[in-house]
Amino acid sequence: MAQSLDKDTLARAAIGAPGPQRGTLGRRVRNTFTAYGFLGPAMGLVLFFFVIPGILLVVLSLTDLSSANFSDPWTFIGLDNFERLFADPFFPKILRNTVFYVFTTLIFFNLGLALVLALVTTNIPRRSGFFFRLIWLLPRLTPSVVYILMWKRIGQADPFGIYNQLFPEFLGASGGNLFLGGSPWTFVILTNGFVGASFGMIIFTSALESIPKDLITAAKVDGANVWRIIRDIKLPMIKWPLLFIATYQTLSLLTSFEYILLLTEGGPGLFTTEVWALTAYKRAFASYFGNSQWAFGATWAIVLVTVALLLAVIYVKLFKFNELIEEPRIENL
């Protein structure tokens, strides 16, 4: 259609690119080089930190490499590692744990609490808002080991833990129903959530603060109360940051395990709080009997990466992220 042709020409004119027929070969080569020049650094990062490790991981997962046979040449064993993985009796449990951990932490903390914190701290005087956000940032600045040590102290069983000393009657008649060994998931999710919420909080805060004041005034005059302003104006206006944080934090939670490792090591008991990334780590580097099954660990990892990639694609499609980078229209006055 003529219209699409026009649009194409206009777009080219706007970015100063030559038309399809025009432009000498030299010019085209130069343009191509410029484009790759700009793309280069980012592509380098993706190549070195994603593509190459990914390929190594795939290769590794097809071998039987472990610390036990390190001195021998590698043997390729086909898909044996994958068969072993899916046949693992704890595979369903680990999968369930991972889904539960990722989405509970995401919904209640990395999105939910983050949004509540952002909404509240932007609705109180600026200085107090800044102060409270700073407090919520502190756990992120604390070294993981120290942070988890504190939680362990908080979560010790009755009568030792700080929580159980402070609230002896709060949960359960005898008090002290809530302790790390008894409710490991609560603690796993709290430790991760309290750190995870601050990222969304910062992003949502800046997004909320960039909503023009006039818009809120207009809504108030139109008759909206606080809840309607949040629902009808604020949330729709921070749609993109919300979707971005949902995507980013899903992937980030999927691959995170260090707090769980420090807090429960996946226990107590067998695989109670073990998540996928933790299994990959344990197989590769911390297996019992002194054998690090590098290849088997790589198999867990590559499956996780594949799932994460699929999820990323689904999020991008589902949330229509391509609309975010829509071609700008030319202003029609």
């Binding site: 023009p212 006039d214 818009l215 005034t217 207009a218 809504a219 108030k220 005059v221 139109d222 008759g223 909206a224 109360n225 009808d232 104006i233 729709p236």
Partner: peptide, 16 residues
Amino acid sequence: PKDRGIGMVFQSYALY
């Protein structure tokens, strides 16, 4: 504001 029976027009239009 919502109970004052007012309508308001802004320089920035302030449309949603």
